[in-house]
Design a protein around this nucleic acid. Structure first.
Length: 638
RNA sequence: GCCAUCGUAGCUCAGUGGUAGAGCACUUCCUUGGUAAGGAAGAGGUCGCCGGUUCGAUCCCGGCCGAUGGCUCCA
């Protein structure tokens, strides 16, 4: 029979038989099977090169640039890692070892004798030695009893547990070199293409992710077809470390963390400027779109949280206190407070949709081990809003929200978005009609805004469907920012209603929504996205004024007074250092504009401008003109 | 919360069973300068906290606190 091979834009044809492995065909037609070509794709599934082609006739040959091929590559690498580790820890019990987005890991029970980072070099050396043999990956089908017998002999209860959950007639092993592992594949034909490896880290991981199970040691690694790619990857890791917002937070003097309040950020003056600019910008945007701002108390009676359901479902994450011997709780969310304002008077359908936003400070007790800079804190300010509307208004409200989301993300240069629509789960409240109307409205709005989205069936909250927004930053990392959640439960629980045109009371739909998520976390993301090079309108210090010497202090004072009067954020370097040093420091602080003022400038009432973002330098700009220009460019986007 | 690693000056880090050092930053003085580090002097640490071993602990041991990386991305 004839098979067709698609490779780098060309199509090759060859004669073959069903029992011929794919690599044999490749070699016959002169393609680099087993080196550049790692795997193939055929009728939507991955076909490994060593597998007989069967009835398949169309093959898309995959190389390193294909994510699927990399998964195969890393999966095989995980086997080599395990083999290398077993050569030093022969009694270690293997569990699972999958490929991941960047590399692979293997979870191993070392029975109290785990490796340490000092062991990484010898593991890597052994790995490369095994890879260069090369080792061929051979698939073997076995019966469940054989498989269990094999692992009983090894005393590996984890693998036995896995086998017992698999369909008994679909159990396969892979053998490579002397190494055998329960595995469904697919794998590389052989280990030849694996030319570089790095063992990255060790971590504790529970068997099956359950903290009641024994804790295993997870060994993370990554491998590449050549050492240059590994170097490149290690460089991106360094770049990410250089952009770490915790580091930038200190370098730019924005915020800090302390033992006196783990997980509670301390905002320094410059960090406050950033936070405030961001909030003022968003506030203006929302007010122009028919929102109104509210503020609700941080501490409210425990009774309220019992009514909202948080006490039953979210208690673990809440802080409690007493006031006058009555139990109170610190709010972990803003919604109950918002509903209290809603029901302060009778509402008419004529005032819906009612859009109430709150930059609400919430406190949540996160586990100590998950706290991470501004990304995971115990107190943060949500850009929260609750929209009360009729079921008929859902679609137009969502559409308006989607447009707002687009605008907001594009303001910060987050062009790439992923959108997830989560629909009705098994356990839900509210009527089926309401659910399908709401889900239909969400989809209609997404289509109307021409947003690409993915549906996660059954992933919605029990109280309503939701849309989540994930953006990609400049290092291609993904962050979930915004969320839009419909809520059929809260209005009921709090007995919210509005008087309809029919004069009768109706229950409104509540839309919870956040665009940035939390200001704290968003600032962290923004710092890493920009590497601390914040745009002029956000920069905590927009202009740093550098007097050439103390003789120019008077003029520097005049310039900074003029800048302050123009509402520009500036700072003067009053130190007795030389100009070169002052420039260096201002550059390291990533200040967008440096204004040098010396005798020449003082005499002519001008400034010399050094623009960090554009790497330009201009001398003798009249002071008034310079201020006017900066004011123009420092305008926040609308 | 659990696992691994870590905790020495504001920051980055050396160091030793006999109560501590460097660079940067800070203060003062000299220098008054023109686009990425001028010079000198000084100040600054209960070596995270508590306990144990020891004649003696920053170092060894235990506990606690905090930080970092992880803790279903399921053969």
């Amino acid at each position: 029979m004839r098979v067709r091979l698609h490779w780098r834009g060309q199509t090759l044809e060859a004669e073959s038989e069903p029992d011929e492995p794919l690599y044999a065909i490749l070699l016959r037609v002169g393609l680099p099977g087993g080196s550049d070509i790692l795997a193939a794709k055929s009728s939507c599934s991955i076909h490994e090169l060593q597998a007989p082609i069967g009835e398949k006739q169309e093959f898309y040959l995959l190389e390193w640039d294909s994510p699927e091929a990399r998964q195969v590559f890393w999966h095989s690498s995980a086997h080599l890692l395990a083999e290398a580790i077993l050569s030093f820890w022969p009694n270690a019990k293997l569990t699972i070892g999958p490929p991941i987005e960047n590399g692979f890991y293997y979870d191993i029970d070392f029975e109290g004798n785990p490796p340490s980072p000092e062991d990484f070099p010898r593991i890597e050396a052994k790995f490369l030695e095994l890879a260069s043999k090369p080792e061929y990956f051979v698939r073997k089908k076995v019966s469940a009893s054989e498989a269990i017998a094999y692992y009983e002999q090894q005393g590996n209860r984890y693998k036995i547990e896995l086998i017992q959950e698999l369909p008994p007639d679909e159990i396969t092993f892979y053998e490579s070199g002397g190494f055998v592992d329960l595995c469904k594949g697919p794998h590389l034909w052989h280990s030849g293409p694996i030319r570089a490896v790095k063992v990255l880290s060790l971590a504790g991981a529970y068997w099956r992710g359950d903290s009641r199970n024994p804790q295993l040691t997870r060994v993370y690694g990554i491998s590449f077809p050549n050492p240059a790619l590994l170097e490149e990857y290690l460089h991106t890791l360094e770049e990410a470390a250089r952009r770490d917002h915790r580091l930038l937070g200190r370098q730019l003097d924005l915020f800090s963390f302390h033992e006196e309040g783990p997980g509670f950020p301390f905002w320094h003056p410059k960090g406050m400027r950033l936070l405030n600019v961001l909030q003022e910008w968003l506030r203006g945007k929302l007010l122009r779109r028919g929102y109104e701002e509210i503020k609700t108390p941080i501490i409210l009676t425990q009774r309220l949280w019992e009514q909202s359901g948080h006490y039953d479902n979210y208690r673990e994450n809440m802080y409690f206190t007493h006031i006058d011997e009555q139990p109170y709780a610190v709010k972990p969310m803003n919604c109950p407070g918002s509903t209290i304002i809603y029901r302060t008077r009778l509402r008419s359908y004529r005032e819906l949709p009612l859009r109430l936003f709150e930059f609400g400070l919430v406190h949540r007790h996160e586990l100590s081990g998950v706290l991470t800079g501004l990304f995971r804190v115990r107190a943060f300010t949500q850009d929260d809003a609750h929209i009360y509307c009729t079921p008929d208004q859902i679609e137009s409200e969502i559409l308006a929200l989607l447009e707002l989301v687009r605008e907001v993300y594009e303001t910060f240069g987050f062009q790439e978005r992923e959108i997830y629509l989560s629909t009705r789960p098994k356990k839900y409240i509210g009527s089926l009609e309401l659910w399908s109307q709401a889900e239909g409205a969400l989809e209609a709005a997404l289509r109307m805004a021409s947003f690409q989205y993915q549906v996660n069936p059954g992933e919605g909250a029990f109280y309503g469907p939701k849309i989540d927004f994930v953006i990609k930053d400049s290092l291609q990392r993904r962050w979930q920012l915004g969320t839009i959640q419909l809520d059929f439960s809260m209005p009921q629980r709090f007995g919210l209603s509005y008087v309809g045109p029919d004069g009768a009371p109706h229950t409104p739909v509540m839309i919870h929504r956040a665009l940035l998520g939390s200001f704290e976390r968003f600032i962290g993301i923004l710092l890493e996205h920009t590497g601390g090079e914040l745009p002029l309108w956000l920069a905590p210090v927009q202009i740093k004024v550098l007097p050439v010497s103390e003789k120019s202090f008077d003029y520097a004072r005049q310039v900074s007074t003029a800048l302050q009067a123009a509402n520009l954020r500036c700072e003067v370097d009053w130190s007795s250092e030389k100009l070169g040093k002052k420039i260096r420091e201002a550059e390291q602080e990533k200040v967008p504009l440096i204004w040098v003022v010396g005798a020449r400038e003082a005499e002519t009432q001008t400034v010399s401008i050094r623009n960090r973002r554009e790497r330009t330098q201009q001398e003798g700009i009249p002071l008034e003109e310079a201020i006017h220009t900066v004011r123009t460019f420092a305008q926040p986007p609308s």
